[in-house]
Design a protein around this nucleic acid. Structure first.
Length: 663
RNA sequence: GCCGACUUGGCGCAAUUGGUAGCGCACCUCACUUGUAAUGAGGUGGUUAGGGGUUCGAGUCCCCUAGUCGGCUCCA
């Protein structure tokens, strides 16, 4: 008889000695004992504080997925005993397991492995924890070289490998066949696990195979990784798969083709996009509005060339630490005349990977006074970065892009006000584009790491300032210690889209390095020379990327102010084309992007076409409408409103455009 | 960059074990003139990403190059 506190209630003289006795609900799959996750089989001691872990909780799902990963590994080694085990942790929505195998897995292999997993699951093997020690484990797992490496690393920072060996005792989980009582498989593992494999149920699926570097280091061997997903029920698995399908339907690469917005012609090269007329309208409207807002907020518009002599990026330091990410130089060789005299000096020119040094030169073009500051320079600056081929992804990771880039040169005294203004500006503008669910991330330096440049006091002041202005927004603030660039701390704005995915949008970054390198200064009120602080800030990140994010956010249903075609007129029959043309002419006078579909398709076909094209307003007119001076609205969702007087219809359309409403 | 898969007319897809490229949409022509998601008929269009090889014969097999996709690593 022991005393336990179970789910917050004190049980004196409890008869149960483990979780099986304590929790009768089948949905409790593990427990927290004094804060530590334990198997249900864990023997409880007097005074323990115990909480049941529901399978649908975050901990429960992780345990389910981790157990599924074990079953996958067992299945792989059943089919291929030569496979060596890497690590197999739970991840968001699922799990993976890494294997060292001679031949990589195929989709057919996955089918076979799923079948094998089902067999293991149905056999109801028990997961049994066994404490071991380094020496015994090394003997027992002598064939598993990766596991041996993990044993050697026990206690150090393993990242995802921490599912294998934790800080406490070294443990192995045996899979015990319930009929024979024999151990049929084992894995080095910290646990905990489900009581038995049967509880994994049928809500799992293997999803894909991929290569992954052992312990995440690209200098290490690549292992074959199998990804899977696992849920408490088949229905939840199905719901997850439907979420993936919804994301696929919204994929901007697919919509870019379907809606004729942009393409990546192979002839131009990887990661280099062209915008088609319809995408061009959206982009231009995005840019126009951004320009207008910047103008209203006191930014100066500047322009700079796409290429520069190497010298500029030597001063900035980019060639020193970032040359791999830049396109290689255009070499202008020196010319020597017949007398051996250098007529023209050789030069390397580079495509710019960033705009800051150019803006700095504008700052330096004259002596600056504290009265000039803050100085805010804005440019839609096109930059080129030689991203590795494997990382390119639609518009969100490209090699040529245009940043909505600004650099603010401020005095240390300006800093707080300026940062407050910038963050307000950023959030306001993002909201205008239809994103309104944000959180902030504050990236700070790692204490004691010498790679971070700049004086301690200015780091402290800058970090405190960022913290203060970020907190003042009232948004959730996630710390990112050690995530700062070496030259300064930053705030990044993370936005959640319509289906809950988060995208890193704007960054606001302080820079103590470039003002130093370029020896920037201004004359203070007391006549002394002082160094300004630089703030880098991009709202969209890049226009291309933001375009991609908005496309996915709206699933192609751009709000009227952004839609390439805002209104399309559809006559019920040819005879009503002229009537709709006159309505269109009136709309056009107000700057509305409108067309009348007077092709000889049938009306139903036109409705179908323009619905698929995501035109926000379809205006339909036939005899009834023409007679009464009205039109009928049809919207993208299929709803309709008939007999709306033309002037009312026009007013509604103009209002929706003006207010940036979604329809 | 690494591992794997993939690349067939503008788009989406077919083509038994290698036997000599088809379909839908789009496009063009003609007819039809229609009240809320596909009118009918006819037609144009591909040396199967590019190059090389094996073979009597290659979209199908092999190699190289480019591109795409999924991951890994990376993202100043």
């Amino acid at each position: 008889m022991i005393n336990l506190t179970v789910d917050g209630i004190l049980q004196e003289g409890a008869s149960a000695s483990d979780g099986f006795g304590l929790f009768t609900s089948k949905s409790v799959v593990a427990m927290r004992v004094n804060g530590e996750l334990r198997d249900l089989a864990h023997k409880l001691a007097d005074g323990d504080v115990v909480e049941g872990v529901e399978i649908s909780s975050e901990d429960g799902l992780n345990i389910l997925r981790h157990s599924a990963a074990h079953v996958l590994a067992q299945a792989v080694q059943t089919i291929n005993p030569e496979a060596k085990l890497g690590i197999g942790p739970p991840i968001r929505d699922g799990f993976y397991y890494d294997f060292d195998v001679v031949d990589s897995f195929t989709p057919e292999d996955l089918k076979a492995l799923e079948k094998q997993m089902e067999r293991i699951i149905r056999s109801g093997q028990r997961f049994v924890r066994r404490v071991t020690n380094d020496g015994d484990a090394r003997i027992e797992l002598s064939g598993e070289l990766y596991k041996l490496e993990l044993i050697g690393l026990k206690g150090s920072d393993l990242g995802e490998g921490s599912a294998e060996v934790g800080a406490g005792e070294l443990t192995i989980y045996d899979n015990v066949d319930p009929q024979s009582g024999e151990t049929v498989w084992r894995d080095l593992c910290r646990g905990p696990h489900l009581p038995n494999t049967r509880m994994i149920g049928n809500g799992f699926a293997l999803t894909r195979v991929a290569a992954a570097y052992w312990r995440g280091n690209e200098n290490n061997k690549q292992l074959q990784r199998i990804y899977g997903t696992a849920w408490p029920t088949k229905d939840e698995l199905r719901a997850h798969q439907e979420r993936l399908e919804e994301a696929a339907r919204r994929d901007h690469r697919r919509l870019g083709t379907e809606l004729d917005l942009f393409s990546f012609p192979e002839e131009i090269g990887s990661g280099l996009a062209v915008f088609h007329p319809k995408g061009g309208i959206i982009r231009r409207v995005m840019e126009d509005y951004s320009r207008k807002r910047h103008e209203e907020s006191g930014y100066d518009f500047v322009y700079s060339p796409h290429i520069t002599k190497s010298n500029l990026f030597e001063i900035s330091g980019h060639l020193g630490w970032y040359a791999d990410g830049m396109f290689p130089p255009m070499k202008m060789d020196e010319e020597i005349d017949e007398n051996g005299v250098v007529r023209k000096q050789g030069q390397d020119y580079y495509l710019k990977p960033m705009n800051c040094p150019f803006h700095i030169l504008i700052f330096k073009s004259q002596a600056r006074s504290y009265r000039d500051l803050p100085l805010r320079m804005f440019e839609f600056g096109s930059v080129y970065r030689y991203e590795k081929s494997g990382v390119l992804h639609g518009l969100t990771r490209v090699r040529g892009m245009t940043q909505d880039d600004a650099h603010l040169f401020v005095t240390p005294d300006n800093m707080e006000q300026e940062l407050t203004d910038v963050i307000g500006f950023v959030l306001g503008l993002l909201r205008d584009y239809g994103l309104d669910d944000f959180y902030l991330e504050l990236s700070t330096r790692e204490e004691g790491n010498p790679k971070f440049v700049g004086a301690d006091d200015i780091w402290e002041k800058a970090t405190a300032t960022l913290q203060k202005v970020a907190t003042a927004t009232g948004l959730e603030l996630v710390p990112d210690p050690g995530g700062a660039a070496f030259y300064g701390p930053k705030i990044s704005v993370q936005a959640r889209d319509a289906i809950g995915r988060t995208w890193q949008m704007s960054t606001i970054q302080l820079d103590f390095n470039l003002p130093e390198r370029f020896d920037l200064e201004f004359t203070a009120a007391d006549g002394s020379k002082q160094r300004p602080v630089m703030i880098h800030r991009a709202l969209f990140g890049s226009i291309e990327r933001f375009f991609g994010v908005l496309t996915e956010h709206y699933a192609g249903h751009f709000p009227p102010w952004l839609a390439p075609v805002q209104v399309v007129g559809i006559p019920v029959a040819d005879a009503f084309s002229d009537y709709l043309h006159s309505v269109a002419a009136e709309l056009r006078k107000h700057g509305v992007r409108v067309m009348v579909d007077d092709s000889d398709d049938r009306m139903q076909k036109k409705i179908r076409n323009h619905t698929k094209d995501r035109v926000p307003f379809m205006l339909i007119a036939g005899g009834e409408d023409a007679d009464s001076g009205a039109v009928s609205f049809r919207f993208r969702d299929g709803s309709q409103e008939n007999g709306v007087p033309v002037d009312v219809a026009i007013e509604r359309i103009l209002e929706a455009i003006k207010t940036k409403a979604q329809v």
